[in-house]
């Protein structure tokens, strides 16, 4: 089946695969050809791609959407770390930036951003660890 992984910034993967495993919001899912149509949100984590005659590939996604049609699977990957309160903070930042320039005021440091970055870093670390175990 055809797999396309795209993000708003660039195309990440496109090709024919045997199966793909993704971290869906309600639990990890494995998609084989002829899967029933499905749309689900993804949480940050790794995608495992099985390609015929090749080693499994892992791609890190920081969330996004997974769309499954019988022969086509599309991953709309987020490029940024997304979380409701984090988005809120970015919005706040943009607001403050404007206010600052209009009034010259100070901004506050936000902890939610640090937390979300930490979560992402942890997920990335887990993946690196997995790679190492597989290789050594």
């Amino acid at each position: 089946m055809q797999l396309d992984i795209v993000s708003a910034e660039t195309e990440i993967f496109s090709g024919t695969v045997n199966a793909v495993f993704a971290p869906a919001i309600v639990g990890d899912v494995g998609i084989y050809p002829q899967h029933t149509p499905l749309v689900t949100r993804l949480k940050p984590g790794e995608l495992k791609i099985e390609v015929e005659g090749e080693e499994d590939r892992y791609i890190y996604v920081s969330g996004g959407m997974l769309e499954v049609q019988p022969d086509v699977v599309t991953v709309l990957s987020d490029t940024a770390i997304r979380a409701e309160d984090l988005d809120e903070n970015m919005a706040l930042e943009a607001k403050q930036h404007a206010e600052e320039l209009l009034k010259d005021k100070q901004t506050e440091v936000d902890s939610a951003r640090a937390l979300a970055e930490l979560a992402e870093a942890a997920a990335q670390l887990r993946m690196i660890e997995k790679f190492r175990k597989g290789k050594v």
């Binding site: 910034e9 940024a80 988005d87 970015m90 919005a91 930042e93 930036h97």
Partner: peptide, 18 residues
């Protein structure tokens, strides 16, 4: 109400979200 600047030439999505 909001403003973003200093994005550079290689812009990332997270600078637009706010």
């Amino acid at each position: 109400v909001s403003h973003a600047s200093g994005l550079g030439d290689n812009i990332h999505m997270n600078e637009i979200i706010g």
